[in-house]
Design a binder for these strands. Structure first.
Lengths: 184, 184
DNA sequence: GTATGCATGTAATACGTTACATGATTGT
DNA sequence: ACAATCATGTAACGTATTACATGCATAC
């Protein structure tokens, strides 16, 4: 992979730094304690990632370097960084994302609401729900046709996947309803 | 990470080779077409992984090398390989697995049923269901106490996680019931 | 005999992980 | 003064990814 600054970790760092100035240590503690989609809190992943973001001018230290090398160093997002974040958030919801990286989509959902607001989030959720339902339907059809001559474990594994899609689609519909209700 | 032969990819390769002799190309096509938990079908991941398994004597070529370097080369599992696979399958279901790598657990479920049979699988599913329910309960309690002063997106993201745990736990109970019904 | 698909492999690169190193701050 | 903790960073290692290379088989 050629240097890929659009992978998940840098985007999460960008999104969290956009909320408020944060240091590497702040971010590590958030990853260590957060109940959701987990990233490693190891210094060996976060500090290099922050250094890359800084090289690209997507974040910058809040205050000028004051000489002492081991002090707390909070970062803020730059205009270019915000543009990169918004671009990532605005990517279409692909079937591949829905099947392989639903956790990434949830991160995008949370940041999208903060950064772009209600209307963009409604569009996002609607696309998400659409993809999820399509997947659920195609698994259901596959099961209907092949149930008879599948191994038990194979069928159960498919039913597991089906259950996940259904639960996520239901969640998306509830979230959509709630967002629409909040129409100012 | 020191050479870690117990990560997911080598174990999946081992499990599939145990089912029947398979070549790297066979495995690539399975990954490219399978509807479930996806691994990369790129040659750059699979052939090196097979080479490492072969170095550890966990798999071996079906027939002796016949000189021609670019011919189909199916592998079988060795006794040591089977032992390593069974050890991986027998690992306890940890909370960290349940939260961070449910896909791995589903792979283990499928192979466990093939390799160790019904009783081991029932124990596995029972542990899985237990962990899932515990997670669901703790998220529910957290939501109850903090709902009021959470951001909308934050609460929705938690509810998404809750929905996944609930759906998985329901699946596990259905699977358990079906396995128990099949007693002899 | 040559184009197409089958099949195995390697090289360059980036990144995450683990373990370790080191400086600053705070409490006693 | 010293320990504990805060905070940033580096080194070694393994591995996934992308792109490329190479040989065999088959059909035409």
């Amino acid at each position: 992979m050629k240097n890929n600054p659009n992978s998940t970790l840098p985007m999460v760092l960008l999104g969290l730094i956009r909320q408020a100035p944060r240091s590497g240590y702040d971010l590590r503690r958030m990853f260590a304690s957060s109940p959701l989609a987990h990233f490693s809190d190891s210094p060996g992943s976060i500090y290099p990632a922050l250094a890359r973001l800084q090289q690209r001018r997507w974040i910058r230290p809040v205050d000028e370097p004051d000489g002492s090398p081991r002090r707390r160093r909070p970062f803020t997002i730059t205009p270019q960084g915000l543009a990169a974040l918004e671009k990532w958030l605005s990517r279409p919801v692909t079937g591949s994302d829905v099947r392989l990286r639903p956790g990434d989509l949830m991160l995008r959902f949370a940041f999208l609401f903060e950064v772009r607001g209600r209307t963009s989030t409604i569009r996002f959720l609607s696309d998400f729900e659409h993809e999820l339902s399509a997947n659920a339907i195609s698994i259901r059809e596959y099961l209907k046709e092949n149930k008879a001559h599948m191994s038990m474990a194979g069928r159960m594994a498919l039913e597991y996947g089906l259950g996940e899609y259904v639960a996520r689609a239901e969640w998306a519909r509830r979230a959509l309803a709630e967002l629409r209700r909040r129409r100012r």
